[in-house]
Design a protein around this nucleic acid. Sequence first.
DNA 1: CACTTGACCTGTCCGC
DNA 2: TGCGGACAGGTCAAGT
Length: 302
Amino acid sequence: MPELPEVETVRAGLQELIVGRQVKTVEHDWPKSFPNTQADVNNFLIEAKVAAVRRRAKVLLFELSSDYTLVIHLKMTGQLVFVGQATQAPSAGGRVRFGAGHPSDSLVGQLPDKSTRVTIEFADGSHLYFNDQRKFGWVKLVATALVGDMPFMQKVGPEPLEDSFTAADFIVRARRRKNSSIKAVILDQTVLAGVGNIYADESLWGAKIHPATLVRYVSDEQLSLLLQEIKSVMTLSIEKGGSSSRNYIKADGSKGTYLDFARVFRREGQPCLRHPDVLIEKIRVATRGTHFCPLCQPDPSE
DNA sequence: CACTTGACCTGTCCGC
DNA sequence: TGCGGACAGGTCAAGT
């Protein structure tokens, strides 16, 4: 899915677009994408207003005036796209259609489409579409007071961009995994929140660590550097609006540009940015496609 | 426990 | 052109 920077980009966009809007109707066609009963929808979603749009790890939280929260996980191919009028109507008047004139206009213009799982219509006539080609993602209506009791929320690790999450904390948490590759460790959401396949590869290149290195052979100094890389790569990606390569798009339907700045991800066969005469390779680590430079990230087993 | 594998789904790409 | 298999940004359940 979208990883932390993509989810944060969607959160920031929706914060501007849907806070204060009142839900009028909800349609959903795939029960696993929205498992609540119609009674729950009628009692706690219809006519509720969006009070805030928050994020924890890769999960979005729409806090509602009903004291319920829409908890949303985009997984691999989920999108949330708003189509409608901006909250602050332009003084010049006229309808603002997000995505209009943008390269993604054709996509936004066709919604809903066959990947649309949930459609929320607001009282002002605007719409929020939850699209999900692979149907792994979900939207759940949960009492706000009980969101923290959800199993994922109970076990997920610290937010990497919080200053309170220190290298010392990271080292302790990472070393709970004795016999895993460093890539598997940083993909483990209970160690820290938000790292997925793109930013795992990007940060390991930044820290010059081979992804298959067992964590017990990674020094404290290297782990400390790796956390710095995770933070800097994610911060840069949020500035760029995330990584759009297949399905991910921002809340207004436009694309993020981080992949234009990626150092290794999907760059196999292209030169390493540190060693123009060495080509990035792609292997499989922790069951995931993995990109690295064989010179600056040497395999410790060789 | 810690770790690995399969499952959940659809679509696309690549080789025969 | 068709078909089969591998693969795609994530997580959970079940297995060893």
